[in-house]
Design a protein around this nucleic acid. Structure first.
Lengths: 221, 221
DNA sequence: GATACCAATTTGGGATACCAAGTTGGTATC
DNA sequence: GATACCAACTTGGTATCCCAAATTGGTATC
């Protein structure tokens, strides 16, 4: 694998894993020494991460994108549009066998599952569901949106009840898809996205002070 | 303006303007000498254009993305999702004054307007309409989709009747928006997008041989 | 003590040199 | 004439060097 992809993927993991906090400044030289690559692949990686929205320009330099509550709200609207569209395409397909794969992924999470796994499965559910539509653009849109949401979702305070609630909603969506009831599935998915957004934004707004104390920049809605 | 942006915008214009044909090979050294920049900004520009889908990797090198009929079909589905969502947001807004700006842009095109202008206005209509929603993600999605469609729309054989048909459909959509009739506006927009796609794909499929003869790579659906 | 100013350092943008892998064109062999 | 093989060239990937602008830290002046 090339140095560019090395730097890109490792830096992405560090940002998504909050090893580098939202709002933190990045210098090309630091990345260079941190990953043992020269500036050419470093700069290429930065350019790619910029298009993903994980970093942004800060005058002349680079900054890890802050958590932006207004952005989270807009992403939810965007998600609703593309995910519902993808879901309707999937419902219109005859073959429902692929739904079972997604269902199996959900069921792989139980009471003893670590939080990282809940987090990953919670995102992959939406991404894989979009992939089933067969539309590359809807799929990419959902994947990119979930990537942008990833850090905020990780910072959200979620108890066991919230996790199982999301899990149940995911199952309800799949059940509607399996019966081919597109309207019902779309309704469930919309409600799920809107509800998730409300809980996410509320949680972050309440924790904003604490998050800032941990060095995480959170921009208000 | 930096060299990177120079190369990026000039190369984008050359690709969108079909001065470099779909499927054509690009070498960093050629771009370097063509624009008088060194490889560092050239590579940065290539990476950015890659994320726009205007160029793609071809093994070790770079290729101007071919016209892909299957992709055009998928983009239409994607557009329908995001444009309708944006339109519904706009309809829900109280202030309808911004619609008039879009309307004025449409009316700036008449029988004597050059084809370039029709082409630009036809795209900007959809982009500006999406911008009115106030949702940055829906807006970017539409803008990027229209960018990807741009070359194909330019190659489409369009007579005077087709142009005025699109013009009338655009006006009908705005009329529905102005009265706040979201369902009607959405129906009109969906029909417009689907109809445009059908005519576009049909036209390109019919002309495929001729386009290939001109050196333009057209990938079948 | 506050502030204006200057030098040293840092940093991103760009240019260039080098390398490895792949391609090409020609040549020698059969 | 076809083919196997080799050398020269091309090309993208990477490292490194230079530069201008911005930041920083300290100092002198008021």
């Amino acid at each position: 694998m090339s140095q560019m992809h090395n730097v890109e993927s490792q830096l992405r993991e560090m940002i998504l894993g909050l090893e580098i906090g939202p709002g933190e400044r990045l210098t090309e030289r630091w990345i260079e020494s941190r990953f043992g690559a020269s500036r050419t692949p470093v700069r290429a990686a930065l350019l790619r991460l910029e298009t993903e929205g994980l970093i942004c320009r800060d005058g002349r330099g680079w900054t890890v994108s802050p958590i932006n509550l207004a952005e989270l709200e807009q992403i939810a609207v965007y998600r609703e549009a593309v995910e519902v569209a993808a879901l309707r395409l999937t419902c219109a397909q005859g073959d429902k066998s692929s739904v079972e794969v997604v269902e199996a992924m959900l069921d792989s999470c139980g009471s003893g599952t670590p939080r990282e796994e809940w987090h990953r499965v919670g995102m992959d559910f939406h991404i894989d569901l979009a992939r089933l539509s067969g539309n590359e653009f809807l799929f990419r849109a959902v994947r990119d949106a979930m990537t942008r949401l990833s850090r905020a979702r990780w910072l959200e305070v979620r108890d066991e009840a919230a996790l199982s609630r999301a899990w149940a909603e995911h199952h309800a969506i799949l059940a509607a898809v399996r019966t081919g009831n597109a309207d019902e599935a779309a309704r469930q998915l919309s409600a799920h996205i809107v509800g998730s957004r409300d809980r996410l934004v509320t949680s972050l707004r309440n924790d904003r002070r604490g998050l800032r104390a941990r060095g995480f920049a959170v921009v208000a809605a």
